[in-house]
Design a protein around this nucleic acid. Structure first.
Lengths: 209, 209
DNA sequence: CCGGATGTTGGTCAACCGTCCAAGACGGTG
DNA sequence: CACCGTCTTGGACGGTTGACCAACATCCGG
């Protein structure tokens, strides 16, 4: 094998590991399967990683990061409240149907993490980040539209995260795209009914009085 | 070991297997761990089951069955639309907080099934049954309250199933009971807004005209 | 009380797993 | 050129796993 920095080899192993997990599941992503996918000798693995667990952690955090970044990016557009919500939901759903395997692996890793001592925190942080992003986006779009939410934003964020998780999981099982999209549309409409014209309790500079 | 019918031993192994899975996860529920939990010699296992997979299938279908039955039972009561919906959501949530492990195992088994060739059908049937039950219950309560749903019932059933799945999964990760209950309350209220007074297109015997 | 059906048991098997290591190859620096 | 940190590699280790089997025990109908 041509000589390569350990750092670079790490990256390739992470990518190869992710590929194996998508194709065969987390359980079958053994050190040998990963190393084989990357076309490297077995010994490489523990030269680049302290343990298999370290590789799994890296994959989960990276997927979370990229998901968060992608979510933020789809929210940068213009438009009224309704169209921005619809656009975001559709953007999320696009990634699910385009790369379902990644989401499936994400669930598997979450459940794996919940069982692994001293690893549950990673799952917790992952979901906390997702909810935080949802919360930020809800607040941002409310600010832009000049409305308040009729429900505490943390609750709304959890609601949103739950629906997306649930719809995704259901779709992963039966691949019913049509009904899934209908559910997301229903959810978007629901959010719209929870928008309240903003009360003027904060001092508004203006011609009033 | 005292002599026992293979059929009975099967039952005990299924129960023991479920216990191990709840305590340690599906992955760690090896034939040896299960047999040890049931305090039986290893050889018993393959005398009662063709394979480990057969045991897992049995556990998943049984959990699905009992969940379905429990769901139907909580729906038998009286009351107006709102209180029946609230009661059902609370009843479901009660089982989650009371026996979280069972739900966690259910998710793990679903993901396991999705990866096992010739096993995905079981996952599919499981989710289909859940949605069917939701659909029946939505139709039943609509009938009793004399309303129609503003959204196709299959879509509503998927929505409901998704929210419950998602809220449960989120709670399994961070155990935030308060916010989870708020989300369920929000969902219940949402359903209420989707009830429409029934149109009189079907001939109604009565004092009218 | 005999004989076949049914249940019990401990040991064994090949496969696979994560991890580790010794021995060597390489490549830039002094 | 010699040196040393960095990387490479094949093999080996102890352990676990699902599955299987031959030998034995028990039970019950005839």
């Amino acid at each position: 094998m041509s000589r390569m920095a350990a750092k670079d080899r790490r990256e390739e192993l992470i990518a190869a590991g992710f590929r194996v997990m998508i194709r065969e599941g987390v359980a079958k992503a053994t050190t040998r399967a990963i190393v084989n996918e990357a076309e490297m000798p077995l010994g490489v693995f523990h030269y680049c990683f302290r343990s298999r667990e370290e590789l799994l952690q890296e994959i989960l955090t990276r997927f979370t990061d990229s998901t968060v970044i992608a979510a933020r990016r789809t929210f940068e557009g213009e438009g009224d409240l309704g169209s921005r919500i619809t656009k975001s939901l559709n953007a999320f759903w696009g990634t699910v149907e385009l790369r379902p395997g990644e989401h499936q692996v994400s669930y598997e890793l979450t459940h794996y993490a919940l069982r692994q001592a001293g690893f549950e925190d990673l799952a917790r942080r992952q979901y906390q980040r997702y909810r935080e992003v949802h919360q930020e986006l809800l607040e941002e779009v409310a600010e832009a539209a000049g409305i308040d939410w009729a429900v505490p934003v943390p609750v709304l964020a959890r609601y949103l995260n739950s629906v997306l998780d649930g719809v995704t999981l259901n779709w992963l099982v039966d691949r019913d795209s049509e009904h899934s999209r209908e559910v997301l549309r229903l959810t978007g409409e629901h959010l719209l009914t929870l928008a309240r014209e903003r009360s003027r309790q904060t001092a508004q500079p203006g011609p009033v009085s």
